[in-house]
Amino acid sequence: METGRVASPMARTGRTTSGSVLDDAAPLAEVIRGDLVESVHLGHLVVLDPAGRPVVQVGNPTKPIWARSSLKPLQLVAMLRAGLELPDRLLALAAASHNGEQFHLEGVLQILASRGLGTGALQNTPDLPLYPPAALEWHLAPLGGGPGPASLAQNCSGKHAAMLVTCLAQGWDIETYLSPEHPLQRAIRATILELTGDAEVVMHTTVDGCGAPLFSTTLLGLARAFSTLGAAPTVDVISHEARVGRALSAHPDMVGGTGRDATLAMEAVPGLVAKDGAEGVYAAGLPDGSAIAFKVLDGSARARPAILAAALRAAGVAGLPGVYPGGLDGLGRVPVLGGGRSVGEVRAVFADAYEGRR
């Protein structure tokens, strides 16, 4: 096992509320401009082999983190266990941080309509579509009744629509579905603890950007959970975990959309289950049970594609059937621009050491 450790001045001075996430942080990626390293992204990362053993470890993946939207596939498992029933395409949307493209918005309306609900039942934070062309289209011809921010257009609307439908399937109140004490949120919490294998003591609770309860995990636990999701369709096609894994890998366009790295990664690697999260988080599971999880400590999304591609290679994707190497190469290529042309790159610093190791 390889472990990088870097002392943090901020951690030493104690000027944080938890102090822990900075401890042992190590470089994950460098930003190279010309022939100099301009910036460095620190963080934590783990790659698990099919047996669940860490084969690559950078920093300390046992620190509690907010996994943000990387938790959505786990939340979806809990909803399926509670009676949610949707076609796979809409299940993928229920675990999405979608672009707000027309097909995403229409899918959310389909989820709501399956139980006779309208967009007024959604309680997620109003916003505009993430994808600029979709935001322009929203302004010109909004599905939500006006050109401004709306819950339907916000990237978590698929998850919230599925939460509402799950509540109705169980006869639970839909007005309070965002309360941490609501039966749905208690079920989600228990499912996250089960799938991650994290100790309950490391679980903290807060509110995510969309307004839903957010539960902390460790990166090691998150990787274990995605290992289960990635391998489940190959061993048990009827389990809830298998349905989630199959839905995401079969419908990557619903999980993100045009140009999104989670979508591109799942298109390049058949059977991959991948989900990005805000503030530099990522998790992915492969059909053989290998898995990865990482967090970029500065919260930047800039380095995520390069780190993701390198971590997937370290997990052995090159040896899996049907992998499109060009797609993986394109995913990991993050140019640094000067005057509108490439003058450097964002490079995962552990890439060379683990290229082709499996």
Score class of each variant (00 low, 15 high):
D88A: 15
A242K: 11
S70T: 12
G158W: 07
S97I: 05
A199N: 13
I238R: 13
P9C: 07
H44W: 03
R260E: 13
L308F: 04
Q170E: 14
G43L: 05
C210N: 08
V56K: 00
S300R: 04
E106G: 00
R260Q: 12
G211S: 14
G332A: 10
D236W: 05
P270K: 09
L308N: 01
L109E: 12
L117K: 00
M1E: 10
E137H: 10
G326T: 12
N155R: 09
G221W: 03
R115I: 05
M163S: 12
E181I: 02
L264T: 09
P27N: 09
T16R: 14
G221A: 12
P335C: 11
A311D: 07
A92W: 01
H98P: 00
D49Y: 06
T258N: 13
S227N: 06
I65W: 01
R347Q: 10
T3L: 14
A242W: 02
R243D: 04
A150I: 01
V336S: 10
E101A: 13
V237Q: 14
G59P: 03
E267Y: 03
G256V: 06
P129K: 07
L140P: 00
T13L: 15
P61A: 09
G4C: 07
T217V: 15
R33G: 06
D288Q: 04
A232V: 09
T16N: 07
I111E: 00
G332Y: 05
R358K: 12
G197C: 09
A242N: 08
L193H: 08
C167W: 01
L193W: 05
L86A: 11
L143M: 13
E194L: 14
G83E: 03
L164M: 10
I292V: 15
R115H: 15
A293F: 06
H160K: 11
A223I: 07
T16H: 12
R68W: 12
A268D: 06
R5Q: 11
G256W: 00
P287C: 10
G299E: 08
R33I: 10
D88R: 11
T119R: 12
S179K: 10
G145H: 03
T258G: 01
D127S: 09
S300C: 09
A232P: 08
A25V: 12
G221F: 11
G256N: 10
D198K: 02
P9V: 12
L312V: 05
R304E: 14
A11D: 14
S216G: 08
A25H: 04
G245K: 07
H44I: 03
H251E: 06
G171Y: 11
Q123E: 13
V46Q: 08
E355Q: 14
S157W: 03
E267Q: 15
D261R: 05
G100Y: 04
G146T: 06
L312S: 01
L74T: 02
S300F: 06
V77E: 02
E267A: 13
